[in-house]
Design a binder for these strands. Structure first.
Lengths: 228, 228
DNA sequence: CACTTATGAATGAAGG
DNA sequence: CCTTCATTCATAAGTG
């Protein structure tokens, strides 16, 4: 197709007119494009960080939405207040501990559900406690007592000394040299998020079609007049 | 300014011509706009997650990036061949976990043999897994969820009970209502990252003008021909 | 302050 | 499905 100069000029003028009046929904001004650019880049950078965070936190195998590392986000107050608090661990008071020890000494076997209830309610008189706490305490007490016994008896041979728990010094968790890991993040962001791959990380952007997600877009679009 | 019908039509034709030939750098086709939309929304969603993570981690006074240093990257997903830590026990990767959680929330009852197979094969795409693992996971998930429920309803002393074994079933992703928090995040993302606020989170997007960040944009721009 | 120990809690797996 | 075990996390407290 051929276009004469005059036609082109006229068309350009028309286009500018439409743009300036926001009548042409699919056309953006330079300013708008630049703004959009900044935002996309910002999002890209931010998302990279997310991936990084996500990766590192994921290593703790406890990334289950509400629980982030050792932090808990109270779902009830997860509104504006975003109350994210550090987990507090129960600790038996000396009195409670003594009682527990006594019961443990006498106890022939496992506490049992009903027994737990009783113990818990008894200990509740001496401080804050829950049945779960009692349950855990006995669980750990038993296990560790057993392990200690094992360790002391079989001390001759360094065979089963490969016990964990007390040998956590040289922990393998010391960053298995993943420099390429970090380097790859930038690439991952793009490959992950800009393709329709079935990559599992798609979960992260599963909201794309959600209502809120769409709102996000709507806001953005309005802001830039993309929707006309 | 006034435009005659003919002029407008001609201008439109010209515009279409330019668009179709990619000669008009500032104009996007519907398809491109839609793609862009998706990506922006995706980034928005992702960034939301970052904000969430960031906030929770910020709760740590000692958070200054070193937190990331302490963490190690998941050996299972870091590099394909390198298995640094030989885990004897299966541990779901974050992605697997999310999928499992989703299924769990939707699933009305027990997965069933055939269902297990399906799930296992799906999860196998995201890491090592066996049907037994899936089976056990659901078993434990249900049992612990149940126990937690019991504990919370049974004892009225509630309060700061050191909850364990599962974090409520109805919170998390599904999150039908009470999404003010989520809704606000979208706004926050925009206000946080697109203003010159002194918010500490600006640190996160310090890269906006960095070379890599710009590359991100460049790639994106090329992909969509924004740069002409 | 770095390192170790003690311990509450989380969780995959096994037994019944 | 329930109970129990074994292992592993994460962290506070203790120690050099």
């Amino acid at each position: 197709m051929e276009w004469e100069n005059q036609e082109m000029q006229q068309a350009e003028e028309y286009l500018q007119f439409q743009i300036q009046n926001g009548l042409c929904g699919k056309v953006m001004t330079d300013v708008q494009v630049e703004e959009l650019r900044k935002q996309i880049v910002a999002y890209a950078a931010i998302s990279e960080q997310l991936v990084e965070l996500h990766k590192s936190m994921s290593a703790h195998h406890d990334f289950t939405g509400m629980r982030l590392g050792n932090l808990y986000c109270d779902p009830l107050s997860a509104s504006i207040g975003h109350k994210i608090t550090a987990r507090q661990r129960w600790t038996p008071t000396p009195l409670q501990l003594q009682i527990l020890e006594n019961i443990y000494e006498q106890g022939t076997g496992t506490p049992g559900k009903q027994k737990i209830k009783e113990i818990a309610s008894e200990l509740a008189q001496h401080g804050q406690i829950s049945e779960t706490n009692v349950y855990n305490w006995f669980q750990n007490r038993r296990a560790r007592s057993k392990r200690k016994l094992q360790a002391s008896t079989g001390s001759g041979n360094g065979e089963s000394e490969a016990r964990s728990e007390d040998v956590g010094t040289k922990d393998k968790r010391t960053k298995p040299a993943g420099s390429d890991f970090v380097d790859n993040i930038a690439n991952r962001v793009e490959s992950f998020y800009f393709q329709n791959s079935e990559s599992g990380i798609d979960q992260l952007i599963g909201k794309v079609e959600s209502s809120r997600g769409y709102d996000s877009y709507t806001n953005l679009a309005e802001q830039y007049g993309l929707l006309g």
